[in-house]
Amino acid sequence: MADRAQYEELTRRLSAVGVVRRQLDRTLPGGCSSGTAVVLALLGRDGDLCISRLAELLGVDMSVTSRHVAHLAERGWIDRSPDPADRRSRILRLTPEGRDRLAELSDRAAELLAVRLSDWSEADVRRLTALLSRLRASFDDASTRIPALTL
Rank of each mutant, 00 (worst) to 15 (best):
W120L: 13
W120C: 12
A130D: 07
E111W: 06
F139S: 06
R108M: 01
A130G: 14
W120F: 15
A109H: 01
E111H: 12
R116F: 05
A137L: 14
V125M: 03
D119S: 15
A109L: 06
S118G: 09
D141R: 03
F139T: 14
L132A: 15
D140R: 11
A114S: 12
R116H: 13
V115Y: 13
A109T: 03
L112Q: 04
E111S: 13
A142R: 10
V115C: 03
D107C: 00
A109Y: 02
A109F: 05
D140W: 14
L112A: 03
S121N: 02
R127E: 08
V125K: 08
S133Q: 03
D140Q: 12
D124F: 00
S118D: 09
E122H: 06
L113P: 01
S143F: 05
S143H: 06
L128P: 01
S143R: 13
A114Y: 09
S106I: 05
E122I: 00
A142Y: 02
A123E: 15
A123C: 09
S106K: 07
L117T: 11
R134W: 10
R127H: 12
E111Q: 13
L117S: 15
S118W: 00
F139Y: 15
L135V: 09
L135F: 09
A130K: 09
S118I: 00
L135R: 11
A142M: 05
D141T: 01
L128E: 07
L128M: 14
D107R: 10
D140K: 02
S118L: 02
A110T: 06
A123W: 14
L128K: 09
V125Q: 10
R136P: 00
